[in-house]
Amino acid sequence: MKTPNAIRRGLAVLLVTLAAGAGAQALSAEEAQLLARVRQHTPTALQLLERSVLINSGTLNPAGVREVGALFRKEFDDLGFATRWVEMPVEMRRAGHLVAERIGGQGQRVLIIGHLDTVFEKDSPVPPWKSDGRRVHGQGVSDMKGGDVIVLLALRALNDIGALNGRTVRVVFTGDEERVGHPTEVARAALVDAARQSDVALAFEGATKDDAGRDAATVGRRASGGWHLTVTARTGHSAGVFGRDGFGAVYEAARVVNAFREQLIEPDLTFNAATMVAGTSVKWDDAESQGQAFGKTNVIPRDATVRGDLRYLTAEQGARVRERMQ
Rank of each mutant, 00 (worst) to 15 (best):
T17L: 05
A157F: 09
Q290A: 14
S224I: 06
S198P: 03
V219F: 09
K122P: 07
A293T: 13
I103M: 04
E266R: 14
N258I: 03
G138A: 07
A273N: 10
G213M: 06
V99M: 10
G279Y: 04
A319L: 03
L164T: 14
Y251V: 12
E91C: 02
F72G: 13
K145V: 10
E205G: 05
L54G: 10
N56W: 12
T184P: 10
V277C: 12
D199K: 06
D309V: 10
R109W: 03
S198I: 06
L111H: 03
A95R: 07
G58W: 05
L229D: 02
E262N: 04
M325G: 01
D148Y: 11
F81C: 14
E185Q: 08
T235V: 04
F260A: 08
D123H: 04
G140I: 05
G64N: 01
V53L: 10
R234D: 13
V186P: 00
E205P: 07
L229P: 06
F72M: 13
V172Y: 03
T208R: 05
N5H: 10
A212G: 11
T118C: 07
E262D: 01
G226T: 12
A100Q: 11
A216W: 05
G220V: 13
G138K: 08
G147E: 09
M1V: 13
F294K: 15
A22F: 00
D132C: 08
G318E: 02
T232F: 06
P301M: 01
A22Q: 02
E121W: 08
F242V: 15
V90T: 14
R170A: 14
R222N: 03
E178A: 07
R222P: 07
A207H: 11
L54E: 11
D215M: 14
A195Q: 14
Q290G: 13
R179H: 11
E87V: 05
N61G: 00
E262R: 06
F120H: 12
V256S: 12
R222W: 00
A157R: 10
F294N: 14
L46R: 03
A24F: 05
Q139W: 10
D309R: 09
D123Q: 04
G96R: 03
A207W: 10
T59W: 00
A274F: 12
R324G: 00
A24D: 03
L60M: 11
Y312V: 12
